[in-house]
Amino acid sequence: MEARNKPNVLNMLTNRNTVGGELADIFEANGVDNYEEALGVSDLRSKEKLSKKVIAKANELLGGRNGLSQYLIDFQNKYLEDKPHFIESYKNAKRSFTILKKALPMLKGEFNEGYDVLDDILDFFDADNENEIIHNSIDEAALFRKQNGVEPDHIHLSAWLRRGEIEFNRIILPDYDEAALKNWIDSKEWLTKITDPAYFKSLPDLFRTFGVGLVYVPFLPKTVYGAVRWYGNKPLVEISDREKDLATCWYTLFHELGHVILHKNTNIFEGETFDPKRRGSNMERQANAFASRYLFNGDSLRIAIFDRMRKNVFMTANNLSEEFGVNTIFTSYWLRKAQYNPTMQRHISIDFLDGY
């Protein structure tokens, strides 16, 4: 069903024939006209209950068919018996839609064969029912909470992860080639294009040759910078455009690559980038050190910025770049993190909104 003609939640009772509707169908199938006038009943199709007198009269109009009256009585009783269950199911489905509609931005218009929008959401998650989605999202949120110490929006998180999984499954990957990935990292060929958003966006094609599924998915509130998951010994590296900042995206990418190389077959949900105020796990510290080594020439830049800020020492991104041999987008990145004249720091915009 086309989305513009589709209800958010279909009341399945509307698909059930009332006893009046069933009788009207029987009349019309047998070529009986003016049956409402003959029965003395207006708008017959809307009637959920008919009297025995009306049912008997209908049977008479149809030639006194054996068993018809009882059929209509049984049909009516079944409808009235089922009606409260359909109403309760509809109410529950509307409550579920209120929760799950947060996932809609991730559907990209690709899931539209359901009988209502809620059914499209079920198709997106490849789930049999709403409760399955909600329970799975709570489990994913628990892992996020354990790794990051903060509470995510569990539906946003689950939808963001699901979109990454869908995109990953569309990629035809060779076997994971860790040596090729390491060679690309160590070659630092990327360093000459570090300020080019178009180059960053082209990296998924390159990473395919390494057997790595690099997927970019727009950020959803209260979720992640990035995530690493493994499928059949092949890594899915999913990056969000949180902060819409190229330097942040580079840091997130290298942080996740640290996990790929150092923590093989471990699923990671990245709630925060390097925050010196948070005590992360040993794996997080290792991934931070990995990213810092390649992007910032170690941790000296960050330490110096926070130390000089406490001492009220004047700093500029250009001067720090020369002193530490780090590109200005990263010295600006750390000056912003330290809230040192943040509006004066260089910022290169990037987003992953194409196709959404």
Rank of each mutant, 00 (worst) to 15 (best):
R4A: 12
R4P: 11
R4M: 07
K6N: 07
P7T: 03
N11M: 00
T14N: 06
T18Q: 05
V19K: 01
V19C: 06
E22G: 10
D25G: 07
E28C: 10
G31H: 12
Y35H: 09
R45C: 04
K52H: 11
K57R: 14
N59D: 15
N66M: 10
S69W: 01
Y71M: 11
I73N: 08
Y79M: 02
L80E: 09
E81Q: 05
D82P: 05
S89Y: 00
F111M: 03
Y115I: 05
D116M: 02
L118M: 08
I121C: 13
L122G: 03
D123Q: 11
H135G: 02
D139T: 05
E140A: 06
Q147Y: 03
G149T: 12
V150T: 09
V150E: 14
E151A: 06
E151F: 08
E151G: 12
I155K: 02
L157R: 00
R162Q: 13
R162C: 15
R163Q: 08
R170C: 09
I171K: 13
Y176V: 09
L181V: 05
W184S: 02
D186F: 06
D186A: 08
E189Q: 12
W190S: 08
K193L: 12
F200P: 06
K201R: 05
G213V: 14
V224C: 07
W230G: 03
Y231E: 05
K234E: 04
E238W: 00
E238V: 14
E243Q: 05
T248Q: 12
L253S: 14
F254H: 01
L257H: 02
H259A: 04
V260F: 05
L262E: 12
N265F: 11
I268R: 12
F269T: 06
F269I: 08
G271S: 09
R279E: 14
G280Y: 12
M283E: 10
R285V: 07
A291F: 00
S292E: 14
R293Y: 14
D307H: 04
R308D: 15
A317T: 10
N319Q: 15
N319F: 08
E322F: 01
F330C: 15
T331R: 04
Y333N: 11
W334H: 15
R336W: 05
Q339D: 15
Y340V: 14
Y340C: 07
I348C: 04
D351N: 14
F352M: 04
L353V: 10
G355C: 04
